[in-house]
């Protein structure tokens, strides 16, 4: 009976999720799969060699690493701050929750378009506000200066995703029993001590969940650079997936694209395993 209910789902997942991963690896070891008629020849690691010897790949790799490992920790801190701020009963909590939920619900690519307008070098409202309060003297090219474009992109993703972290952590905070805080108060622990010795340790498993949920998408960022900067100026905001998408679907190098895709998959899995290995504690409570 269980088989009857599960077979469609498992077949589906194997066909759409697992088989493609294997097929990507197969494609990455062959040449000439662009035209269906053309015979595919086995080339071994040739595609990987040309990917790894391309300076654009390493540029995209570094951009992606900076993007991921700068944005995620900042999101964690801001998300935790937001969660602690909202984690109490007060008038207007519903609106505050909506304000937290809204950036999550926005489509990434449309968010990118919105911020490319807010950051606009000539008519952008952010420039205008910064000039009005006296921080800037004249309009600043936030998105077209190669030294600053990645920072602008980080700002946008932190704006969008800190709130998701806050939602996850709020659920974690709600599950911490009140009597633990009471006990800590009776023992004379200050608010700060309560945070360090009660909240943070008990929040650890939830922080792990939030870390994985945020790191994986950040590592695969595509829509944000596509819509905000197009990967530029130059290649200063070209992420791995954006780069791999270009070589696959613009330059039609399917073999190299598949090699890049395999590298991305392996890295994502490694990140997951590292997180779980360092942070997971089986059943502390």
């Amino acid at each position: 009976m269980a088989a009857l209910l599960l077979t469609p789902v498992l077949t589906y997942l194997f066909l759409i999720s697992y088989y493609p991963i294997i097929d990507t690896i197969w494609t990455s070891l062959h040449q000439g799969s662009v035209l269906p008629t053309q015979e595919e020849t086995f080339v071994g690691l040739e595609n990987y060699r040309s990917v790894v010897s391309s300076s654009s790949f390493w540029n995209a790799f570094i951009v992606t690493m900076i993007y991921t490992f700068v944005s995620v920790p900042i999101e964690m801190v801001i998300g935790l701050g937001l969660a602690l701020l909202v984690n109490r009963g007060f008038k207007g909590k519903y609106i505050a929750q909506a304000a937290i939920l809204f950036p999550w619900a926005l489509p990434t690519i449309i968010n990118a378009r919105i911020w490319s307008w807010l950051f606009h070098g000539e008519y952008g409202v952010i420039n205008d506000m910064l000039i009005r309060v006296g921080i800037l003297e004249s309009s600043y090219p936030f998105l077209s200066n190669p030294d600053i474009a990645l920072a602008s992109m980080l700002f946008v993703t932190i704006w969008k995703t800190s709130s998701f972290v806050a939602l996850i952590l709020l659920a974690g905070l709600a599950s911490i029993p009140e009597n633990l805080y009471e006990a800590a108060r009776i023992d004379g622990a200050s608010k700060v001590k309560q945070f360090w010795y009660v909240t943070l340790p008990l929040l650890k498993p939830v922080i792990l969940v939030a870390l994985i949920f945020r790191t994986l998408p950040a590592f695969q960022a595509f829509g944000l650079p596509y819509g905000l900067t197009g990967g530029g100026p130059g290649e200063s905001t070209t992420t791995l997936v954006l780069w791999a998408h270009q070589i696959t679907f613009t330059r039609l190098e399917f073999g190299e694209g598949a090699a890049a895709a395999t590298i991305i998959t392996v890295f994502a899995m490694v990140i997951c395993v590292v997180y779980v290995a360092t942070l997971y504690e089986p059943e502390v409570r």
Binding site: L10, Y19, P20, D23, T27, A261, T265, M269
Partner: peptide, 26 residues
């Protein structure tokens, strides 16, 4: 079964894009 389901949620999308594109095209 639970592991198969959960791990499939972790697989990167780009790792699945090229074969699915070919499959959809064919």
């Amino acid at each position: 079964v639970l592991m198969i389901v959960l791990v499939s949620a972790m697989l990167p999308f780009f790792g699945r894009l090229i074969p699915l594109f070919n499959l959809a095209r064919e």
